[in-house]
Design a protein around this nucleic acid. Structure first.
Lengths: 142, 142
DNA sequence: CGATATTATCATGTGTATGTCAGAATATAG
DNA sequence: CTATATTCTGACATACACATGATAATATCG
């Protein structure tokens, strides 16, 4: 459903959102916590900074923190940086243009499900999923 | 949502399902009709044959045809040959194990949508989408 | 200032999906 | 039997997602 990169980003943001506000977490600590290759996560975090989702601090005691309240951060803001999802590219058959007026054969049947997916990513926020305590035998705080 | 290969396969099968039964279509004609690279489509068609979805005839007047009625062919039969979809790999965060008993943070909220996707591919058949006449300005009979 | 910890940036490597090509196998027609 | 049309098969090419490593820039601390 999502690219590996988008999954990594979501995991990192969820982990950051669980930290106390104002505290920073280093890329290394985050990489360990969410089980993503250190250097690769560095790039992903940097993209999130450029998108205004995270803030970064360099130097000693540096690291990353959320740039906003997690209740103001729908999943689509993160996912759309890495994957095409939602309005664009919903055509199941890969047509560039696929709409009610110029539909592919699947369009009519697929439409409702596609809209539910769009709504999920658009309306679910990071805060919404923090409540899920991710209990028990997890190897990390994903 | 689907890999390019899975999309190609769906387009080819839909096109074949529109032909009169017993008639065969060559890979070349199919490739032109659904706008997929000839040689690559050949491999995809061969996979569909091995999976029992198509039948093939070699030699002069050879080609491909559906091995069953399109009303007995749910989309998942085709898609699952190329993509992991449905029951397996529904975890949004990419966890190997993600269930009600060992959920990721997204699990609870994502579940309903994931099930709708699974149902769509499991219950929609090729026959269901043939009714959609894919009218007007299409470049081909996708 | 110098040592250190951290992010930012760039060059490179690896693996998989996608795509191409050439030839082998097989069927039909004359 | 020969020519031809087609699928089948395997080797190769390309593009991009994923990943690694080295170095520069920047901030803190003593």
């Amino acid at each position: 459903m999502l690219s590996g990169t988008a999954q990594y980003a979501l995991r990192a943001v969820v982990c950051l959102a669980r930290q106390p506000r104002e505290s920073t977490v280093t890329a290394t600590d985050l990489a360990n916590a969410v089980d993503v290759p250190r250097n690769y996560l560095g790039k992903i975090l940097h993209e999130l900074v450029r998108a205004g989702i995270l803030m970064s601090l360099r130097g000693k005691h540096g690291g990353f923190q959320l740039a906003m309240g997690s209740e103001d951060l729908p999943l689509i803001r993160i996912v759309s940086l890495f994957d095409e999802i939602g309005e664009q590219r919903t055509c199941l058959l890969g047509r560039a243009e696929c709409s009610d007026r110029d539909p592919c054969p699947m369009h009519g049947r697929w439409k409702a499900t596609a809209e539910e997916i769009t709504n999920f990513f658009g309306h679910t926020t990071i805060a919404d999923v923090l409540g899920q305590p991710d209990p028990s035998g997890r190897r990390s705080g994903v």
